[in-house]
Deep mutational scan, measured.
Amino acid sequence: DLSALRVEEVQNVINAMQKILECPICLELIKEPVSTKCDHIFCKFCMLKLLNQKKGPSQCPLCKNDITKRSLQESTRFSQLVEELLKIICAFQLDTGLEYANSYNFAKKENNSPEHLKDEVSIIQSMGYRNRAKRLLQSEPENPSLQETSLSVQLSNLGTVRTLRTKQRIQPQRTSVYIELGSDSSEDTVNKATYCSVGDQELLQITPQGTRDEISLDSAKKAACEFSETDVTNTEHHQPSNNDLNTTEKRAAERHPEKYQGSSVSNLHVEPCGTNTHASSLQHENSSLLLTKDRMNVEKAEF
């Protein structure tokens, strides 16, 4: 173990290094160091905050020279020094078990990766560091076993998940096959086929009936047209017969005018059967003409 005197000496050296690497504005270890034209180094955030307070150039807090945003430059070497100082402080805390008085939040800088452990060898070769390295080497064999167990647990979990997924996939297939086998029997399929065939026959029977009705309507229309044509021909046949009657009536009127007047009046009210309204109107006109002729003949006879 380190003596108290040596611990104090190391602590004083760390404090001196820390004062050199402090920012003059925030009085902390410089984060993202930036250098000016006057070779003074500050935190990048502190300098941008200072420049944004005034429009135009501002003055350096140490030498009062003008500073602009374009004049600022990043210093990589200074950032490396800060990183190495942080590593020294971490090693000091691990070796002594004491917390550094002016320690900052170094938890963000710590890294437990194997590459980081290899890099620590180049920091300080001390008894405390050696003991700590031995402890780490002793704890390393235990870690692979834990990793193997965790991997086995994960693989077993994956296997159970896969088996569950396969079961879920197989179950719908089985149910679907069961439904297909038990849903419709052979008799049901035959009945469905016969039902479809009967429906098709009914459709075939319905369509000819409609065509037959249309044919019957067409035949009825044709018969009505033929009947009207026969009526017209009958009226045409009746007209010459009426003319013959008129000639006979004229002759009778010349011989017996008194008797014919009474008979002509009675004939006005008689309509021949089986004739249309057109034929009756023609008869009325003929009878009126005959009456006028008879009157003329009677007057001539009187004179």
Rank of each mutant, 00 (worst) to 15 (best):
2 L>W: 12
2 L>T: 01
3 S>Q: 07
3 S>W: 13
3 S>G: 07
4 A>N: 01
16 A>I: 08
18 Q>P: 13
18 Q>C: 15
23 C>T: 15
24 P>S: 12
28 E>K: 12
28 E>I: 07
29 L>W: 01
30 I>R: 10
32 E>H: 11
33 P>N: 10
36 T>Q: 04
36 T>N: 02
36 T>M: 06
37 K>A: 01
40 H>T: 13
43 C>E: 15
44 K>R: 06
45 F>P: 12
45 F>M: 08
45 F>C: 08
45 F>L: 06
47 M>F: 05
52 N>P: 04
60 C>K: 15
65 N>M: 06
65 N>A: 12
76 T>E: 02
77 R>A: 14
77 R>I: 09
79 S>G: 04
84 E>L: 14
85 L>E: 14
87 K>A: 13
88 I>S: 13
88 I>N: 05
90 C>F: 07
91 A>T: 06
91 A>W: 01
95 D>N: 15
103 S>H: 02
103 S>I: 07
104 Y>D: 14
105 N>F: 12
105 N>V: 08
106 F>D: 09
109 K>W: 04
111 N>I: 04
120 E>R: 05
123 I>V: 09
123 I>E: 03
126 S>V: 11
132 R>F: 01
135 R>Q: 04
135 R>A: 02
137 L>F: 03
137 L>N: 04
140 E>K: 11
142 E>I: 05
144 P>C: 05
144 P>W: 08
146 L>C: 04
146 L>Q: 11
146 L>I: 15
149 T>C: 05
152 S>Q: 11
153 V>H: 12
153 V>C: 09
154 Q>R: 02
154 Q>F: 05
155 L>W: 03
158 L>C: 02
159 G>P: 12
163 T>C: 02
165 R>F: 02
168 Q>R: 13
190 V>Y: 00
191 N>D: 01
193 A>S: 11
193 A>P: 14
200 D>S: 06
201 Q>S: 08
202 E>F: 03
202 E>I: 00
202 E>V: 05
205 Q>L: 00
205 Q>S: 06
206 I>F: 01
209 Q>E: 12
220 A>F: 00
221 K>C: 00
223 A>L: 04
224 A>D: 05
231 D>L: 06
231 D>Y: 00
234 N>P: 15
235 T>Y: 14
240 P>H: 02
248 T>N: 10
248 T>P: 14
251 R>Y: 07
252 A>R: 00
255 R>P: 02
260 Y>T: 12
264 S>T: 02
267 N>S: 01
268 L>E: 13
270 V>S: 13
276 N>F: 01
277 T>A: 05
279 A>H: 08
285 E>C: 01
289 L>M: 10
294 D>L: 00
295 R>I: 04
295 R>V: 00
296 M>P: 13
296 M>K: 09
296 M>L: 13
